[in-house]
């Protein structure tokens, strides 16, 4: 009884101080951490693969005009699974190391991207320019049986 109390005290003494100084000192996440999404607008060609696979329906696609496709990211609902990053054929969408995303303004957690598209001569729907079609078939939509939405 006395021995075990002594042992317990020793364990506590040996451990010392283990708490971190965060938030007074900055805290870097580990490499490979899945943080806030970032989008490189120049790389995106609007295939919509990310909207196709997002489990939380954070990414919403709408073809507002014939030449224009709008991609909206309501990432306050984002679960940081990283599926969008995984399927993006151009690596335009990435998960950053940023984790301090608390804000008072919901608009801070909203992003909107407009991409100019080539409309189909027959049906009028938006498509990425023909040269990119092959790239699109490569990644985002190959997911069909595994993750595509019918």
């Amino acid at each position: 009884m006395f021995l075990s109390k002594l042992r317990e005290a020793l364990i506590c003494l040996k451990a010392g101080r283990v708490t971190l100084d965060y938030p007074l000192a900055p805290q870097e996440p580990k490499p490979g951490f899945r943080g806030k999404i970032t989008i490189d607008a120049d790389l995106c060609f609007g295939c919509g693969g990310c909207a196709n696979v997002c489990p939380a329906n954070v990414i919403v696609l709408s073809d507002t005009e014939q030449h224009r496709r709008t991609i909206e990211f309501y990432w306050r609902r984002c679960t940081y699974c990283g599926r969008c990053e995984e399927v993006c054929p151009e690596k335009a969408i990435r998960l950053s190391q940023q984790f301090e995303t608390a804000t008072n303004d919901p608009q801070d957690m909203y992003m909107r991207l407009e991409v100019f598209m080539g409309p189909c001569q027959r049906c009028g729907r938006c498509f990425p320019p023909p040269t990119a079609l092959d790239r699109m078939m490569n990644t985002g939509f190959r997911e069909g049986p595994r993750g595509g939405r019918a």
Binding site: P29, K30, P31, G32, F33, R34, T79, Y80, C81, G82, L95, R146, G147
Partner: peptide
């Protein structure tokens, strides 16, 4: 966190 990118909800599993 180092293995999966998150402390919890690792997001590592997929069908297959």
């Amino acid at each position: 966190e180092e293995i999966s990118g998150n402390r919890k909800t690792y997001g590592m599993n997929t069908v297959g």
